[in-house]
């Protein structure tokens, strides 16, 4: 990879959406299920808890659900393999476009450590919220949205409400 290369412009949003939609449709047709992300994070947490405190993990229905998932072991599940693919696919696209760069993305008035702290806190809210909702923007939003789930559409509407409601308070981080 050349260092001084200008990153390529992003794809037209409707074209990227069409591509994403066809990938999603492929998942429905082949597997009968959509895409996801937060479920793989949950599997890793459940396996971690089980490694440190097995009795505690198996005594909790939430962890147990993920531990009993998969074809012979929690890591042999659709979402774990899909998420590994997401990392590979994201890297391929980024590398082809000259967009792989070690950086902390933030607004001009935000320090890097401050941005990292907000990222951790926001990630924690996201993890908790996703589990409460039974999925994240991938599983509930995209996948549940495309199959017209009532709860998925309720969820999606509230994600935008939450984002816009918080935007004013977060402007120092981004603007």
């Amino acid at each position: 990879m050349t260092t001084a290369r200008e990153p390529a412009p992003y794809m037209n949003p409707y074209l990227a959406g069409l591509g994403l939609g066809l990938v999603l449709l492929t998942a429905f047709v082949l597997m009968g299920r959509g895409l996801g992300a937060s479920g793989a994070f949950s599997t890793i947490v459940a396996v971690g808890v089980d490694a440190l405190a097995p009795a505690h993990a198996t005594g909790n229905d939430f962890y147990l659900g993920y531990l009993e998932n998969g074809f012979g072991g929690p890591f042999k599940s659709f979402l774990m393999f899909e998420v590994i693919g997401v990392l590979i696919g994201g890297f391929i696209s980024g590398a082809l476009a000259g967009r792989v760069r070690r950086t902390v993305e933030r607004g001009p008035r935000m320090s890097a450590p401050g941005r990292i702290a907000f990222a951790i806190f926001g990630g924690a809210l996201m993890g908790f919220g996703a589990k409460l909702a039974g999925g994240c923007t991938s599983g509930q939003g995209l996948s549940g949205g495309a199959v017209l789930g009532l709860g998925s559409w309720t969820f999606m509407l509230m994600v935008f409400v939450g984002g816009y409601a918080g935007a004013y308070f977060m402007r120092r981080q981004w603007k």
Partner: peptide
């Protein structure tokens, strides 16, 4: 799901990603 969506929306604007997109961010 209503409450979870709202919490997730706050997490989105504070953290800057959602779980799927954060993986792509890590990959790049």
């Amino acid at each position: 799901q209503l409450v979870g969506g709202l919490v997730l929306g706050f997490g989105f604007i504070i953290g800057g990603y959602c779980p799927g997109t954060s993986l792509v961010g890590v990959a790049t």
